[in-house]
Design a protein around this nucleic acid. Structure first.
Length: 740
DNA sequence: AGCACGCCGACT
DNA sequence: GTCGGCGTGCTC
């Protein structure tokens, strides 16, 4: 009896065999509904065989292979397999991360009868089997009455009436929209509907004229269409990298009919703006945005538009790297250095690295764009493994804002603010310009200290200090959420001299309000932006010039264009200089560069002021010169000398549990087992406590393995018996960790 | 992951 | 005497 091998979303490192009456190679990549345990599951067919190695008695019947749906393409299956192998996950776990959740419900794959029709402008036709020819027109919009997300029991609608009605129906949640790919035979058989044609709206080269460096980058990259070629696009903030991406996507579409571009972006916040820009450029129907914030049905619908080839530009966060794209021609990873590309739970994959792998597998060029590339990518470019394109100047031709340091050793600061910074802000307020003060810490103060005995308020559940939130009158733990009232007297010595130490956004906001009573100040951090729409409100306030000063965290660093913002102040950056994390400086450089880029984006001169007690630190020297290459070269030299990535490759075994000794014992045993493999060329370090040794009453420790040879590391992983995950000690393997 | 089986504490 | 804790093991 022939069997299908099905990868299922269970943490078991193998596929499961099911009996089936007929299965061919063509079924590989198709979804299958199978019985599993006492329930049913949806899995992916990853193989077919004439016979199973298991005795027939242990096999069960495959309930259904979804042959009416497109199969996952070969490159997505290969990418999932690579991801599972490289990051030591199971194929099923990777597929769970890769597939929209709506597809993983068995009901979703069960066909249902037609329930009815929706609107009609010029034609109403049933579907999906035996679709009449008309249904395949390029502009057909099919409205499915929720018979099941995969089955467009459907009605056709044409023209603008249909478009309007479609929007209403979609808003009602009753229908789902599905676009069909065009088929040549029938395309001509139907009249072109009235109304705007999204395909012909597609502007060919209407965008702003490219500067010479942008043009050169586009030409260089476009010359590699049709083959694998990695490019690092290193462009200063405001140099118009996005414009380069758009031109490339456009060129790809003109070179190959229906060509698709995958554009990966770091954060959800960025997506709406970018999506709007892309839609304006290529037409709404050609663009699809994918991110984890979407409702299940919506995510599925968009994913299917990409899978069918209807969407030409797919913009999405890291999960989008797995999207099936039949006509993939180009991959772009914007802000490629961004930490959010590394998944920190479940399968801990790096979307940028997977994107490079996929580009190679598909034979398409990939562009990694950043003003401050990761040392990994920068090094690849230096070594000639990546082509290195540069955009050295801003697209508006304006010089970048000068970066100056305020030496706080020689100046008095109050609440963390120097007079020089406050005066500079005051001057901008007076002239009607806007300022941004970047403080990478929320709350009022990161610690409360007793000035009599030195006691500081600890979190009872974590090895961290409590942060003072003065407005709420509470001490909060930023790690576990623990929350307690502020005490008047020191619990240790009874003294009343408790004082806040260090500065958070609230304190800076409050101090600025006291010193600049005429200024309209708004704080932007996770606490202040908790309410829905709060951020949009801030943006509107800035645009309407109702806000003079923004005080905020990283949230302010990314991609917002505030034309009247001419001053950026940076407070408390020094904490990034002396971290246990060897990547802290790299992050700090990128972050400051990014916030600095908020200043003077339009035709107004900007200025960046950084308060520091270490003005001669090389990081600040490079920042002031705005010389990323000097900074990166220094980082690379240090990492090569002291043996840090990317000079070496790392694997981190993380463990945590309620009992400190058990956690360490598990890692000790794991270290012994790793050494016992006898694999040469891999340094197995001693297990150590994690930088934050306890979080929410769980003790955390880690075991680091590193090697200059990936293959040696891999051989060790293959031979290594890891401690099993239990309730007492949880164990996670992190390949290429990005967090200490 | 679920879900069963299985062996030891506090309760209708 | 049972109900229920979570440790161990299996799922084609």
């Amino acid at each position: 009896m022939p069997v299908v091998r099905v990868a299922l979303d269970v943490p078991v490192d193998r596929a499961f065999d099911y009996r089936t009456d007929a299965a061919t190679e063509a079924d590989i990549g198709r979804l299958a509904v199978v019985p599993f345990g006492r329930g049913r599951k949806v899995g992916v067919v990853v193989g077919v065989a004439a016979q199973s190695e298991l005795p027939d008695a242990r096999l069960r019947d495959c309930l259904r292979i979804a042959r009416d749906l497109p199969a996952l393409p070969q490159d997505v299956l290969a990418l999932a397999a690579f991801c599972a192998d490289y990051y030591r996950a199971t194929p099923g776990e990777v597929l769970a991360a890769a597939l929209p959740t709506a597809l993983r419900r068995p009901e979703a794959l069960t066909p249902r009868p037609v329930r009815g029709w929706a609107l009609v402008d010029s034609a109403a036709v049933p579907g999906p089997e035996g679709f009449p020819k008309q249904a395949t027109t390029r502009r057909a919009l099919i409205i499915a009455l929720r018979a099941g997300p995969m089955h467009p029991d459907a009605v056709l609608a044409f023209g603008t009436t249909a478009r309007r009605a479609l929007a209403d129906f979609e808003a009602s949640g009753w229908v789902q929209r599905i676009d069909l790919p065009p088929t040549p035979a029938s395309d001509a058989s139907i009249d072109a509907p009235s109304g705007a044609d999204p395909a012909s709206d597609r502007t060919s080269g209407v965008g702003p004229a490219l500067r010479p460096a942008q043009r050169a980058a586009v030409e260089t990259i476009a010359a590699t269409f049709g083959r694998f070629s990695p490019h690092l696009l290193q462009g200063v903030t405001g140099s118009g990298k996005t414009e380069v991406y758009l031109h490339l996507a456009d060129r790809a579409m003109h070179g190959v009919d229906g060509a698709q571009t995958l554009l990966l972006v770091p954060e959800i916040h960025l997506t709406p703006q970018l999506e709007t820009a892309l839609a304006a450029r290529f037409g709404v129907d050609a663009v699809v945005a994918l991110h984890s914030g979407l409702a299940d049905g919506e995510r599925l619908a968009r994913w299917q538009r990409a899978q069918r080839g209807a969407a030409r530009v797919i913009v999405g966060t890291r999960l989008a790297v797995f999207t099936p794209l039949p006509h993939l021609a180009l991959i772009v990873v914007d802000e490629e250095h961004d930490a959010s590309y590394k998944q920190q739970e479940g399968v801990r994959y790096h979307a940028r690295d997977l994107a490079v792998w996929r580009a190679r597998a598909r034979g398409v060029p990939i562009v990694l764009g950043s003003a401050t590339p990761s040392i990994e990518s920068w090094r690849h470019a230096q070594a000639g493994r990546y082509a290195h394109a540069r955009l050295p100047e801003r697209a508006n031709g304006v010089a970048p804002p000068p970066i100056r340091l305020i030496d706080v050793r020689t100046r008095i600061t109050r609440d963390g603010l120097s007079d020089a910074l406050v005066d500079a802000i005051a001057a901008r307020v007076a002239s009607g310009e806007q300022s941004l003060v970047f403080v990478n810490r929320r709350g009022y103060a990161p610690a409360v200290v007793c000035h009599a005995c030195g006691w500081t308020a600890p979190c009872p559940r974590c090895s961290a200090r409590l942060t003072l939130h003065l407005r709420r009158g509470r001490l909060l733990c930023h790690w576990c959420g623990h929350d307690e009232p502020v005490t008047e007297a020191c619990p240790s010595c009874g003294n009343l001299d408790l004082r806040p130490r260090g500065e958070g956004t609230q304190r800076v906001e409050q101090a600025l309000a006291e010193r600049l009573p005429q200024a309209r100040i708004t704080r932007v951090d996770r606490d202040a932006m908790r309410r829905r729409g709060a951020f949009a409100q801030v943006r509107a306030g800035v645009a309407a010039r109702e806000i003079d000063v923004l005080v905020g965290t990283q949230m302010l660093a990314k991609g917002h264009d505030f034309p009247r913002l001419t001053l950026v102040g940076v407070v408390g950056a020094d904490q990034g200089l002396f971290s246990v994390d060897f990547r802290a400086e790299e992050r700090l450089y990128a972050l400051v560069t990014q916030v600095a880029g908020r200043a003077g984006r339009a035709d107004r001169a900007g200025e960046v002021l950084i308060q520091t007690a270490f003005p001669e630190h090389p990081l600040y020297a490079a920042l002031v010169e705005q010389n990323f290459d000097a900074f990166a070269a220094g980082q690379w030299a240090a990492r090569a000398r002291y043996g840090f990535p990317p000079a070496v490759h790392q694997v981190l075994l993380r463990a945590d549990g309620p009992d400190e000794r058990e956690v360490h014992a598990a890692l000790d045993a794991a270290a012994r087992a790793a050494r016992a493999t006898g694999v040469d060329g891999v340094a197995v370090h001693d297990p150590v406590a994690a930088p934050l040794a306890r979080v929410a009453d769980r003790w955390r420790a880690q075991l680091l393995l590193q090697s200059t040879s990936r293959s040696a590391l891999r051989r060790l992983l293959d031979a290594w018996t890891l401690p099993v995950d239990t309730r007492r000690v949880r164990v996670v393997l992190d390949v290429d960790p990005t967090e200490p």
